[in-house]
């Protein structure tokens, strides 16, 4: 461990493509949480995407090129942290596999994987934070995104942090661990199946009587929010980081643009 990790760790913020384009507020919320937790935050310019669109489509060459780009952009930091179980699961598990035949890169991929964290697990498991000091008035339910849940074991961390939010009540839905039907490009390649899955998810969400849906992956949240809006169902949808940072104050996901910056 470097000296800085005992003092103020240098954290490279991983900016997911969806968040960059559709929901900058999640980025600001993540930054606020990390800085308030004492991290020195840097947003590397050399990043674009974790490479999953290529990896999951079978285009390993392209995925490798993107993985190299991420490794180069982030290996100088004490940690890579991002508000997405999906991207982080890919960095942690897929990158070392991508370089199975290239030992030098494999070592670098493994080194990066070892210091890469999804936001809520970084806050809880690494920094030992249990309270973020924010307030949110509402009854929420939490969707466990599959990559975070099964790839990274994220289940208790967001709930632990939410338990410390004043005014917030968590009401668990049935089948919270079942896929929402997003699945990256799956949702546009097989839209009808995807819609069936998201409608099942929405049924479980509505059955809780909660007024707000939270989750840790913008892809899933856009899938559910997009469907809720299309069906004209009233339900606020926020990324968990927005609530934890006290930045879930403007329009929720899909309810119109947020003034940003």
């Amino acid at each position: 461990m470097t000296d800085s990790s005992r003092g103020r760790p240098r954290v490279g913020l991983f900016v997911t493509c969806l968040m960059n384009l559709f929901r900058p507020n999640i980025g600001f919320a993540t930054a606020k949480l990390l800085e308030e937790a004492g991290c020195r935050l840097v947003v590397p310019q050399g990043q674009t995407c974790c490479g999953q669109p290529g990896y999951n489509a079978g285009d390993e060459d392209s995925a490798r090129a993107l993985a190299q780009q991420v490794i180069l952009a982030f290996e100088e930091f004490d940690y890579l942290v991002g508000p997405s179980g999906s991207c982080l699961a890919s960095i942690r598990h897929d990158y070392p596999l991508l370089f199975a035949a290239a030992p030098a890169w494999r070592a670098r991929a493994e080194a990066l994987a070892a210091k890469s964290w999804e936001l809520t697990s970084f806050l809880v498991d690494v920094l030992g934070i249990s309270q973020t000091g924010a307030r949110f008035d509402g009854v929420v339910t939490y969707h466990d995104s599959c990559s975070g849940l099964r790839g990274l074991g994220i289940k208790g961390q967001p709930r632990q942090l939410l338990a410390g939010i004043e005014g917030l009540t968590l009401r668990e839905m049935a089948e919270t661990e079942v896929c929402c039907g997003f699945g990256g490009t799956f949702c546009v390649k097989y839209p009808e199946i995807s819609l069936k899955l998201v409608d099942d998810k929405i049924q479980n969400v509505l059955a809780t009587g909660a007024d707000t849906l939270l989750g840790g992956d913008l892809g899933c949240l856009m899938q559910v929010a997009g469907r809720l809006r299309r069906r004209d169902l009233p339900m606020r949808v926020y990324h968990v980081a927005e609530v934890l940072a006290g930045l879930a104050t403007g329009p929720s996901i899909g309810e119109g643009p947020l003034a940003s910056g």
């Binding site: 900016v15 968040m19 960059n20 384009l21 559709f22 929901r23 900058p24 999640i26 980025g27 600001f28 930054a31 947003v43 310019q45 949702c187 546009v188 390649k189 839209p191 009808e192 995807s194 819609l195 998201v198 856009m222 899938q223 929010a225 997009g226 469907r227 809006r229 299309r230 996901i253 899909g254 119109g256 643009p257 947020l258 003034a259 940003s260 910056g261």
Partner: peptide, 25 residues
């Protein structure tokens, strides 16, 4: 984006991306 909008709305983004805002700020 027909595959997406077939059954879902797309959130309207802010006019500026996170990276743009961040570095500007």
């Amino acid at each position: 984006a027909h595959g997406w909008t077939l059954g879902r709305d797309l959130p309207t983004p802010a006019a500026r991306t996170f990276l743009e805002c961040w570095h500007h700020e």
